[in-house]
Design a protein around this nucleic acid. Structure first.
Length: 688
DNA sequence: GAGCACTGC
């Protein structure tokens, strides 16, 4: 595992954040690690060119170049470690695809992947990062408009570029990497690229995927309607990977309690199997914390002859300093057990894992278009997910994977998870497609179309926000500006409406804070202390103003320091990110000529402004303490993380609903119901 | 009355 070294790649202004960011994933990262190892051991070092030539993909170099030349779309199926991400763009560059100021783009679903791959390729090409090879991710642009020939970027960034240059005219080849993950932006790009290729027949597209959805990609891009397959405009090529074999073990009988089974399996491996660390996949924080505690308990009763056992949790909500513990070497005669959420499936890679335990479930977001509610549900993993999890045991040497379900059950699992496009709120996507001139959203060419009802729900919301007119066209300037904003439309609306209430300064901070997660740290062993720290920031008006307080304290008293955050049980990473988001949103507001006024301590103005965007999310308290939405009388509850959880609040607006054990409202603010009829008369007709 | 998978602009 490598870490960002401040001063080496140091992207952007926020070196302090980069320095603690963990380095991740896949062949890109694997290769960059190997470089570090070989540089350290000069005697056995292969030259960089020799290293490139022993990669599995090297054997297919000429064939790949031939296919890209001949076919508009090439689908590259390659397992982890094939080298496709780092090599393919270089081959294209060497073969002349970047001549004449043209650029080869390669998208990644995650920021860190884009930066680490670009760094590795710059080393291989012996150029300075940001010159011939660059990257583009949110808040960090590291490329030269004139010089950069190979550009790695997040898929979201390439999508942004389509809003400025709809034909993506500077690119000769666009490679969509990790397409099997089916991220929202990757899926939108599929549809857009298909359109662009009709207008730019010379454009080449490469779809790279680790699994077997290649057929679906093929059918989507193939425009040959005849039976003569020689006229197809799409080709597929498969590249071997460079993984070590992983033995898969299944249960003979299904188990009823996979947490207990996981713990037993850990203890079993520890006593019976050879060296190597253990990675356990569970679904959420609560399960992970309790499993870690239980493993630690049982580890105390190990026989004296046995190695020690060190159990550590990892999930996204954990503060960075605790996340980093999993990369530390476990100490003499000790085996590490890392208990993880899905974060360890693709986002974080831990070296030294020889054993994987897969509970067979994952927590996923689902969206109910009928109610507009999102829920977090635990569902069985897909086959490709299970495969990816198992693969985590075979990175450096052969490993073993223990699936806590039967082989028969495995066969019944779906091949792939439901794409994000089909389980998310589409308001922002619809708005952006409208901005791209896709008037009939329902007829847009999706790889897999979201349910029509989800699109209709999104259109209704946009209409009620006045982002769309009666004909479904973007309104000017509101709809057009909302489409450009990198926030969801309701949040964008309160930013653009803030001048009416003279509270732009405050709304800007609230919008940035709402956009980040896990601001408050709640360690399971110091809950009371953390709660009391949080209460110091809490105000009776609700969570939005509490978040405003936290941010103000962070930038003034706290001087944006990690130490101060730690002392007050606040997540430094989250607050630093809010700081970046605030700066970015401010640039948009300036461009839109929105005056940056402060309303001082007038919370009524701020709360009214919130209502102007969130009027649809209003609820009324019932005598039993539960809530009913004003719009359709649905039952909701206050999330325990809200500062209003223990207070009386007759009327509230909320940022979102997350359904877990109940339907919980998150991020609430107390309002006066009269504001609803005042600010959203088109939405509410009150009977008195 | 009691709880927050993971990304991304």
């Amino acid at each position: 595992m490598t870490f960002w070294k401040p001063g080496t790649i140091a992207p952007g202004k926020y070196t302090c954040i980069s320095a603690i960011r963990i380095n991740v994933d896949r062949e890109a990262e694997r290769e960059s690690n190997e470089t570090i190892v070989t540089f350290a051991d000069r005697q056995s070092t292969l030259s960089i060119q020799q290293q490139r030539q022993i990669l599995p993909i090297y054997k297919s170099r000429n064939q790949l170049l031939y296919l890209v030349e001949k076919y508009q779309v090439t689908i590259v199926v390659g397992q982890t470690g094939s080298g496709k991400t780092t090599q393919l763009p270089q081959y294209l560059h060497e073969a002349g695809w970047t001549a004449g100021q043209r650029v080869v783009a390669c998208t990644q679903p995650r920021r860190v992947a884009a930066t680490t791959v670009a760094q590795r390729v710059a080393i291989e090409m012996n150029v300075q990062l940001g010159q011939e090879v660059g990257y583009s991710i949110r808040f960090e642009e590291c490329y030269d408009v004139k010089k950069t020939r190979i550009k790695y970027m997040t898929d979201g960034m390439l999508f942004r570029e389509t809003l400025i240059d709809p034909l993506l005219s500077q690119y000769s080849v666009i490679m969509i990497d990790e397409a099997h993950e089916r991220s929202l932006h990757t899926d939108i790009l599929f549809g857009l690229l298909k359109k662009i290729m009709k207008k730019r027949p010379e454009l080449r597209v490469i779809i790279s995927s680790a699994t077997l959805d290649a057929e679906a990609f093929y059918d989507f891009f193939n425009i040959n309607t005849t039976d003569d397959t020689s006229k197809d405009n799409v080709s597929i090529i498969s590249i071997e990977g460079r993984m070590f074999p992983v033995d898969i073990h299944y249960l003979e009988e299904p188990c009823s309690d996979y947490i207990e089974k996981a713990i037993e399996t850990v203890m079993d491996i520890h006593l019976k199997e050879g060296t190597g660390d253990i990675l356990v996949f569970l679904t959420g924080r609560e399960q992970i914390d309790s499993a870690v505690e239980e493993i630690a308990n049982r580890a105390m009763n190990l026989p004296r002859s046995a190695m020690k056992l060190d159990a550590l949790p990892i999930y996204a909500g954990l503060p960075a300093e605790q996340q980093l513990l999993i990369f530390e070497s476990p100490g003499y005669n000790t085996r590490k057990v890392i208990v993880a959420t899905n974060i360890a499936e693709a986002s974080i890679t831990i070296e030294g894992i020889s054993y994987v335990i897969d509970c067979g479930f994952v927590k996923l977001r689902a969206y109910n278009p009928k109610t507009g509610m999102e829920s977090l549900v635990v569902v069985p993993v897909s086959k490709s997910s299970a495969q990816q999890r198992a693969g985590r045991a075979g990175r450096l040497k052969p490993g073993k994977a223990y699936r806590l379900y039967t082989e028969d059950l495995f066969r019944q699992l779906p091949d792939a998870s439901i794409p994000e496009m089909q389980r998310t709120n589409l308001a922002q996507v619809v708005l952006q497609l409208k901005a791209l001139g896709v008037d009939n959203i329902l007829r847009f060419d999706f790889l897999t179309a979201p349910p029509a009802q989800m699109m209709i729900r999104a259109l209704e919301l946009l209409y009620s926000l006045k982002a769309l007119d009666d004909n479904g066209k973007l309104t000017v300037p509101l709809g057009v500006q909302l489409a450009e904003f990198p926030v969801d439309p309701m949040l964008g609306k309160i930013l653009l409406d803030s001048p009416r209430f003279g509270c732009c300064t405050e709304i800007l901070i609230i919008a940035a804070m709402i956009s980040v997660q896990n601001v408050f740290i709640m360690p399971s062993n110091a809950t009371a202390k953390a709660e009391s720290e949080r209460r110091n920031f809490a105000v009776e008006e609700g969570d939005h103003l509490t978040l405003l307080n936290v941010y103000t304290a962070f930038t003034t008293r706290g001087q944006k320091s990690a130490r101060w955050c730690h002392d007050h049980f606040l997540n430094f990473r989250a607050l630093s990110r809010a700081f970046s988001i605030r700066s970015q949103l401010l640039k948009f507001l300036k461009r839109f000529n929105i005056p940056l006024e402060s309303c001082g301590n007038d919370t009524v103005k701020i709360r009214k402004c919130l209502v102007s965007g969130y009027f649809a999310n209003a609820a009324k308290m019932m005598p039993d303490g539960s809530f009913r939405t004003i719009r359709d009388n649905a039952t909701l509850h206050i999330h325990p993380s809200s500062v209003l959880f223990t207070r009386n609040a007759p009327y509230v607006i909320f940022h979102e609903v997350v359904e877990t054990t109940k339907a919980f409202m998150r991020d609430l603010t107390v309002i006066d119901p009269a504001w609803l009829s005042e600010l959203a008369p088109h939405f509410y007709e009150f009977k008195k």
